[in-house]
Amino acid sequence: MGILWCILGVIAFSGFYLLVDYSQKKGCEVLAINFVVFGVGTILALLAALPMKTGQFPMKLVWIGSTIGLTAGLGLLGIIMAMRSGIDVTIVNTIASLSLAVPILFSLFLYGEVPTLRKSLGLILAVISITFIQRGIK
C-alpha cells in the first residue's frame, strides 16, 4: 500500500512540474496560476479537515502555518517565473528538489543537529549539482 502512495506521489509531483511548464508555454499569467493553485489547495484542505473545531487553530500554529504559506507562495512564484524565463523544467524541478538541503542546514545552526555522513555527502553533491546546472544555463 505504501508503494502505491509513493507512485501516486511521483505521478502527482511530475504532473505538477509538467503542467506548470505547459501553462507557461501557453502564455498563462503567473500570478493568476499562483492564486488558483493555492485557492484549490485551500478548498481541498478544508474538505479533508471537516468537521473542524476552533481548538484546532492555536495562535502559534496560525503564525507558523501562515509563514509556511507565505514562503511556499514565494517559492511557487520563483518556480513559475524561472520556467517563464526560459529555464528548462528538468532544471527547475532538480533545483526545487534540492531545496531540502535548506532545512538540514538550518537544523544544524539552530538546533545543533549535526548531519550524518550520508547527509553531508548529499549536501556536497547538492552544491556540485547547482554549480553544474548554473554553468549549463550560462
Binding site: 500570478l31 499562483n34 492564486f35 488558483v36 493553485v37 493555492f38 485557492g39 489547495g41 485551500t42 481541498l44 484542505a45 478544508l46 479533508a48 479537515a49 473542524m52 484546532q56 487553530f57 492555536p58 500554529l61 496560525v62 507558523i64 502555518g65 501562515s66 509563514t67 509556511i68 504559506g69 507565505l70 511556499a72 507562495g73 514565494l74 511557487l76
Partner: peptide, 17 residues
C-alpha cells in the same frame, strides 16, 4: 495539527496571491 496547518498554509498562499 497537520490538517489545520495545511488549511492555514494554503489560505495564506491564496491571500498572498
Amino acid at each position: 495539527l497537520q490538517p489545520s496547518a495545511l488549511i492555514l498554509m494554503y489560505a495564506t498562499g491564496t491571500l498572498f496571491g
